[in-house]
């Protein structure tokens, strides 16, 4: 293993801390937001930059020490493909179960009943 130059130290630390902060804020959002649908927003969006920051840090670290390394990008690709789909499925499930939404949610649906699966 070779020594890291000082500038690389700083840049890599910056990206890893950025990623970690966003991952933390995303988790915090799960706790703080008022209802199920709003909570979905936090992990789907903030994990992309959270993981993205850590991935950039990893690419820079291994590229400066061991020679070019890009296979971390695949993690980002999978995340881009899967995050919106899992969010969509969760949102759909929540919608069909008619989970309670916070009272200041405004509903602009023309036919809300077509989104319901409730038996009663």
């Amino acid at each position: 293993m070779t020594e890291l130059p000082v500038w690389a130290d700083w840049v890599i630390s910056f990206f890893i801390i950025l990623g970690a902060s966003f991952a933390f804020i995303g988790s915090l959002g799960l706790l703080r937001l008022p209802d199920f649908m709003a909570r979905l927003h936090a992990p789907t969006k903030n994990t992309t930059l959270g993981v993205g920051g850590v991935i950039i840090g990893s690419i820079l670290y291994f590229s400066t020490t061991d020679g070019l390394s890009l296979h971390e990008l695949l993690i980002a690709v999978f995340l881009f493909l899967t995050a919106p789909i899992s969010a969509h499925l969760l949102a759909k499930a929540g919608l069909h179960l008619e989970l309670e939404l916070s009272e200041n949610t405004r509903d602009f649906r023309t036919k809300p009943e077509q989104y319901s699966d409730k038996d009663d």
Binding site: M37, L40, T44, T48, F80, L81, P84, H88, A91, L95
Partner: peptide
């Protein structure tokens, strides 16, 4: 488009 909506500011496609 649905994935784009989920990934961009403040919106999630639900159904």
């Amino acid at each position: 488009l649905a994935s784009t909506i989920s990934l961009t500011p403040g919106t999630i496609s639900a159904e």
